Simulated assay, not measured.
Amino acid sequence: MINPEPLDKLRKFFGAEGESFVREVVTRYLQGVEGMLTDLERFLQQQDTVQFARVAHTLKGNSASVGAEEVSSLAAELEMMGRNGDLSGAPEKILLLRNAFSIAKNELEQMLRGKAP
């Protein structure tokens, strides 16, 4: 479930270039998330809590900027796990994150095709 507010704010801020800018932001977001998810899994396997938290933090912010609130929220939880040095619950949370991203990706792709999510 995408919250349209962050993208609507970007559209307004950039005026005539707003729609083009939003499309670029969304496209870059969609292209980058798979790599971040792979990085999270790799850092989990390595038990590298510092890098795990860093990637989760980036994913949290990027997701919030496109209105992917569920993805952002789960990434925030993963970030805290990394910061606290306890990744014991991370595998299940990453699975939830992948599912939430799948839903968000579908909605954002619909938006890019000109259909309201």
Rank of each mutant, 00 (worst) to 15 (best):
I2R: 05
I2V: 14
N3V: 03
N3S: 06
L7K: 06
D8K: 12
K9G: 01
R11L: 07
F13H: 12
F14I: 03
A16Y: 00
E17V: 00
E19F: 06
E19Q: 07
E19W: 04
S20A: 08
S20E: 14
R23F: 00
R23C: 01
T27R: 13
T27C: 06
R28N: 13
R28L: 15
Y29G: 02
G32C: 07
M36V: 01
L37I: 12
L37H: 14
T38N: 14
T38Y: 03
D39K: 14
D39A: 15
L40Y: 12
L40K: 04
R42M: 04
F43W: 05
F43L: 04
L44P: 03
Q45G: 11
Q45L: 06
Q47A: 10
T49G: 04
T49S: 10
T49N: 04
T49K: 08
Q51P: 02
F52M: 03
A53N: 01
R54I: 02
A56S: 12
T58F: 09
L59V: 04
K60A: 01
K60C: 04
G61Y: 08
G61L: 06
N62K: 13
S63P: 03
S63W: 05
S65V: 04
V66C: 07
V66G: 02
V66N: 08
G67E: 06
G67I: 03
A68T: 02
A68D: 03
A68C: 02
A68Q: 02
E69N: 10
L74H: 09
E77T: 11
E79I: 05
E79Y: 15
M81Q: 15
M81G: 03
R83W: 15
N84S: 13
N84R: 14
D86Q: 11
D86V: 09
S88Q: 11
A90T: 00
E92A: 13
E92V: 03
L95C: 07
L95D: 15
R98Y: 03
R98L: 02
N99D: 15
F101S: 00
F101T: 00
S102H: 12
A104S: 15
K105D: 04
N106L: 07
M111D: 01
L112T: 04
L112W: 11
G114L: 10
K115Q: 15
